[in-house]
């Protein structure tokens, strides 16, 4: 069976992550779409290492790095999550595994009460998954990125108590093969 796990990003990962982040597929779905140089990536990693309000994980599929899961704006009460797949050779349905992992990590490890998720309105896949999982949807908002471009964001959130009530019903709707992978997902934490 496929094994999905998440471990903290390390310095040895950042060049691969930079290549992923600069790829057209990933870059086009980000708020900031500027090309990221090696120096900029280094500076970003140095900031992340010092930061208490962000966590960045590498998503591993059978031990192979395939993408990133991140949490930002972490407070005692809430955080926001995002992710991207850097590799195209992945388990069909992997997005559902990452969707579950975000909820589990934020509510069980970070112990926040609210998980936020904001995606570009052009990015349809995550929006349909958020709705399937039972996220609440707020009004769209317009953000201006570092290049001055205005982008429309679809905004979602999940309250911890809601997930505790919903998760069984959501998991009952999931196809059995992917549910098995979700149940075996690991977070490798210190």
């Amino acid at each position: 069976m496929s094994q999905v796990s998440f471990r903290k990003i390390e310095r040895s990962d950042i060049e691969l992550v930079r290549q992923w982040r600069n790829s057209t597929r990933v870059n086009s779905q980000m708020i900031n779409q500027q090309y990221i140089s090696k120096d900029a990536q280094n500076d970003w990693f140095n900031r992340v290492k010092q930061s208490n309000d962000q966590k960045h994980f590498i998503c591993l599929l059978d031990g192979r790095a395939i993408g990133v899961l991140n949490f930002s704006g972490i407070t005692k009460l809430e955080c926001e999550w995002g992710c991207y797949l850097g590799e195209e050779r992945v388990l069909p349905g992997i997005g559902l595994v990452i969707e579950s992992a975000a909820l589990i990590y934020s509510f069980n490890y970070l112990s926040v009460n609210r998980l936020n998720a904001n995606v570009l309105t052009s990015n349809k896949n995550p929006q349909s998954m958020h709705r399937f999982y039972g996220y609440n949807q707020l009004e769209n908002k317009i953000v201006t990125n570092a290049s001055g471009m205005q982008l429309e964001m679809a905004c979602f959130y999940y309250q911890k108590e809601q997930w505790e009530l919903n998760f069984k019903a959501v998991y009952d709707k999931l196809p059995k093969p992917i549910l098995k992978v979700i149940e075996n997902t690991e977070f490798i934490v210190d």
């Binding site: 069909p92 349905g93 997005g95």
Partner: peptide, 30 residues
Amino acid sequence: DSLGFAILVARLEEEQGLDPFSDMTEVIYP
């Protein structure tokens, strides 16, 4: 989308009896 692919894989298992992503010793992902 991911949900669609998960359902597709499940349907192929139910209807064709095939689940290569679980059955393969060394999994190859498409």
